[in-house]
Design a protein around this nucleic acid. Structure first.
Length: 797
RNA sequence: GCCCUCGUGGUGAAAUUGGUAGACACAAAGGACUUAAAAUCCUUGCCGCUUGCGGAGUGCCAGUUCGAGUCUGGCCGAGGGCACCA
């Protein structure tokens, strides 16, 4: 509805508007639903699409159905496979072993969201960490661009930009090598740090259990049990947060590169991540809380090297690490450097000069793993030779279509069992197809480009179309896409334009609006969710089962509508009972579009009443207009009122449309009704003028209530309705203004006078005011503030 | 723990740059029309005396200002994001 209002408005303003709709139709829900109902995912998906499409059509949305696309169609994913190969050639796609959440019962990889309390959401089995060969997109390559270009996105909510910024997580520091003693095969361990200036406070070195040096301990039973302990807490977020810092002391020691006389123990530690930095950190307990917790547990030294102020020479750290600004001390040649502005840069310079380390920028952003061991997704256009070499599937052999009518209830990836499908001949050589499919986020990372050329069979998009339409002027979506989808789409756009002189779009979405959800209360009885249609209430507080009104229903909080909680309203039924415009009007009326809407029958009925009332009013106004057909060109008072109101309301509605204040537009419509409903009782002398104003009002109401308004306009026999009225500023010039009279900053009166009244004249008027005298009695005016046409404030003593 | 956003009547909410707080609606109460209902329209809305007027008032405490829902600092509360990121 929000998008439809916008596109109708822009069309009326004369823009060429592309307002498409498509179906992001691959993914787990279809596969799982098909599995449990013994259906083909394709049929299940197509049925859903047709239901949803008919719902959207009934709402009367101005969608260009000629451009409809569906990501599960080979016509769409054929091009996606080409893009995959294109990125592969550019070196933006690679295959690597990585840890994944592995469900040992279902034999599949799970996304983090599918791991609940450490267990697989379907099987209930304890999830394991497993190393698997996976396909990755090198999103990291664009870390800097993805971060810096956020600044150019002026029409994005800053909330989303901040979230992306934190997600990318750029940090400045240095890498440095530590000399290691105790094992002749380990000479050095490389660490990344943002605080090289605290190096003199180092009291241990910790590495991840997945660090390459772990191989020297694989026969140590104690280490193996420690490693298992770590991987148990490894993947779920909550457990990480609660996890205690655990260490396994090795026989190794590390030498402080700035003070070779100092040796510290080397630990394996559960808090060190292999996939950030180099999987190794040096610990400075005095100035890092995590290091301090570890040091306290294993009774390691705590050596402060930053003091808050010059004079704090005996500064000590007890249970809370000091991470604030200050001055370096206890650090020989680094002493007296100011923290942080001098200390970090200076230390890096010293480390670089001595060839111990070098400046480095690290990103939290990890490369995007796109492999899924699932059937219902886009096949990856790669095959393997008998020698396990990677072969690209030649373009002329694309698309690699998914096999149809296959058995889904098998363990692991159903495609793995498709022996015939897997066989492919490439350049005369017999190969085996990749059975992983692409993450559905890949499908949604470029669909906006496809909308520009939805029927182009040779290419995913044609460059001319894309240059004409892109970037998307206004993107509307839920805030839940703030990071994943919106970041992936930004990456994909950059990846396509990389090494491509024709495609020069660097950002896909110029404007972003994050809208709220439609919510409804939830109802439950004996642990079963109930649909709102199954319950009834006579006071709006206590709810009962419709079938058995003695049974009380438990009312839960309002949540965004979902099938699983059954708190949904069928839009088709609503449209049938109230009409599409009333439904739109209600959705917009309740809250600002960025906030959630609470669905209520009362609100729905109120909106329905409004559309009925307005239709009746239109019938009355039509009669007035037709009855009074004699020509009288003279404007009377009512005509002037009408013109003034019309121009004011056009201005307001235009402003509110431009700024997404759609709920205020609903208020504007009530104003219109209330005004016209009163005005109709008055004598109108120039009926033609009145009619023109009324048409203009109807025209600006059109984006919100398109069906009703188009009917009203055709009743008046208006032919051209697709325009946006110009504002006649003559009627916006107010002849008189209301001036607020304040005394000592408090409002005491309101006075209506001519616009641009002089200060002297105004004060003369005020003197005559009976009601104000009492305030001035026995007081002296020490100051007068007069803001022209607005306010006057007297300071009395 | 860190980061972000937000606190306005019984409810959803308005309030373009600091300048009439509560537009517009929902719910409630009262009234008009009607035999009655529906529909429609009007009034009320916190505290005090009750034509009218006076007072308090935008989470709490302070500050800046002639003037603060709006700006600054601190606190309290709610929601969202991230999370051993070195």
């Amino acid at each position: 509805t929000i998008g439809d209002v916008l596109s109708r408005y822009k069309i009326q303003k004369g823009f060429n508007v592309l307002h498409p709709m498509g179906w992001d139709s691959f993914g787990m829900p279809a596969e799982n639903a098909a599995k449990s109902n013994n259906l083909d995912p394709k049929i299940w998906t197509e049925e859903n699409i047709s239901v949803m499409k008919s719902q959207l059509e009934k709402l009367g949305l101005s969608i260009d159905w000629d451009r409809e696309i569906s990501t599960c169609s080979p016509k769409y994913y054929k091009h996606q496979q080409k893009f995959f190969l294109d990125l592969y050639e550019k070196g933006l796609v690679y295959r690597k072993e990585n840890y994944v959440n592995w469900d040992p019962v279902d034999k599949t990889v799970l996304a983090n969201e599918q791991v609940i309390n450490g267990k697989g959401w379907r099987s209930g089995a304890t999830v394991e960490r497993k190393k698997l060969n996976q396909w990755f997109f090198n999103i990291n390559k664009f870390s800097d661009d993805l971060l810096n270009d956020l600044e150019s996105l002026e029409n994005w909510p800053s909330k989303v930009k901040t979230m992306q910024k934190n997600w990318i997580g750029k940090s400045f520091g240095c890498e440095l090598d530590f000399e290691i003693q105790g094992n002749s095969k380990v000479n050095k361990i490389k660490c990344f740090t943002t605080r090289p200036d605290t190096l003199f406070g180092m009291s241990f070195l910790a590495v991840s259990v997945d660090h390459p040096i772990a191989k020297f301990y694989k026969d140590d039973k104690d280490f193996e049990s420690f490693r298992k302990e770590c991987s148990k807490t490894g993947t779920t977020e909550e457990s990480i947060a609660q996890a205690e810092k655990l260490g396994f002391k090795t026989n190794l020691t590390a030498i402080n590169p700035l003070d070779k006389s100092k040796e510290v123990p080397v630990y394996f530690a559960n808090f060190v991540l292999m996939d950030y930095g180099f999987g190794a950190v040096f610990g400075c307990p005095a100035h890092d809380q995590r290091d301090l917790d570890f040091a306290l547990k294993y009774k390691l030294e705590i050596n402060p090297v930053v003091k808050p102020a010059e004079e704090d020479n005996n500064f000590k750290v007890d249970k809370i690490a000091y991470t604030g600004p200050g001055v370096i001390f206890n650090s020989k040649f680094l002493d007296n450097l100011k923290v942080p502005e001098e200390s970090i840069i200076s230390t890096i310079e010293i480390l670089e000069k001595d060839k111990i380390g070098k400046k480095k920028i690290n990103f939290r952003l990890k490369d995007w793993g796109v492999s899924r061991q699932r059937y219902w997704g886009c096949p990856i256009p790669i095959a393997y030779t008998k020698k396990k070499e990677i072969k690209k599937v030649p373009i002329k052999q694309l698309p690699i279509k998914l096999p149809e009518n296959i058995k889904l209830n098998v363990s692991g990836n159903p495609l793995d069992h498709q022996e015939d499908w897997k066989k492919i001949i490439i350049d005369g050589e017999e190969c085996t197809l990749e059975t992983d499919t692409l993450d559905t986020f890949v499908d949604s990372s470029w669909y906006f480009l496809r909308f520009c050329s939805p029927k182009n069979e040779n290419e995913g998009f044609s460059i001319d179309d894309v240059n004409y339409w892109m970037p998307v002027d206004q993107y509307i979506g839920g805030v839940e896409h703030a990071i994943l989808h919106l970041l992936y789409s930004r990456f994909f756009t950059k990846a396509l334009s990389y090494q491509n002189n024709e495609f020069k779009i660097s950002e896909p979405f110029q404007g972003l609006f994050t809208q709220g959800m439609v919510c409804h209360e939830t109802y439950k009885i004996e642990n079963q969710w109930l649909n709102p249609e199954e319950v009834t209430s006579n006071n709006g507080k206590d709810y009962y089962l419709k079938k058995d009104t003695k049974k009380k229903v438990i009312v839960g909080p309002s949540e965004s509508m979902s099938k699983s909680k059954k708190n949904t309203i069928d839009p088709e039924k609503m449209v049938e009972s109230y009409g599409a415009d009333s439904v739109r009007f209600f959705i917009l009326s309740d809250s600002p579009p960025e906030k959630d809407v609470q669905w209520s029958d009362q609100g729905m009925q109120a909106s329905y009443k409004f559309t009925q009332k307005f239709w009746n009013l239109n019938t009355e106004l039509k009669k007035i207009i037709n009855r009074n057909n004699k020509k009288n060109s003279k404007e009377n008072k009512t005509n002037v009122e009408m013109s003034t109101f019309t121009n004011q309301i056009i201005k307001k509605i235009t402003y509110n449309l431009e700024n997404f204040h759609y709920n205020v537009i609903v208020a504007n419509f009530h104003e219109i009704y209330n005004f016209l409903n009163k005005l109709k009782q008055h004598e109108i002398s120039n009926i033609e003028d009145f009619k023109q104003n009324y048409i203009n009002i109807l025209v600006v109401m059109n984006p919100v209530l398109p069906h009703l308004i188009s009917e009203c306009l055709s009743e008046l026999e208006v032919k051209n309705t697709s325009f946006w009225p110009e504002i006649n500023t003559k009627y916006l010039e107010e002849k008189s203004v209301n001036i607020v009279i304040q005394i000592n900053g408090k409002k005491r009166d309101l006075i209506n006078c001519d616009k641009n009244i002089s200060e002297e004249e105004l004060f003369e008027k005020l003197k005559a005011k009976e009601g104000l005298r009492k305030y001035f009695k026995g007081k002296q005016i020490i100051k007068k503030i007069y803001v022209k046409n607005k306010i006057v404030n007297f300071i009395l003593k």
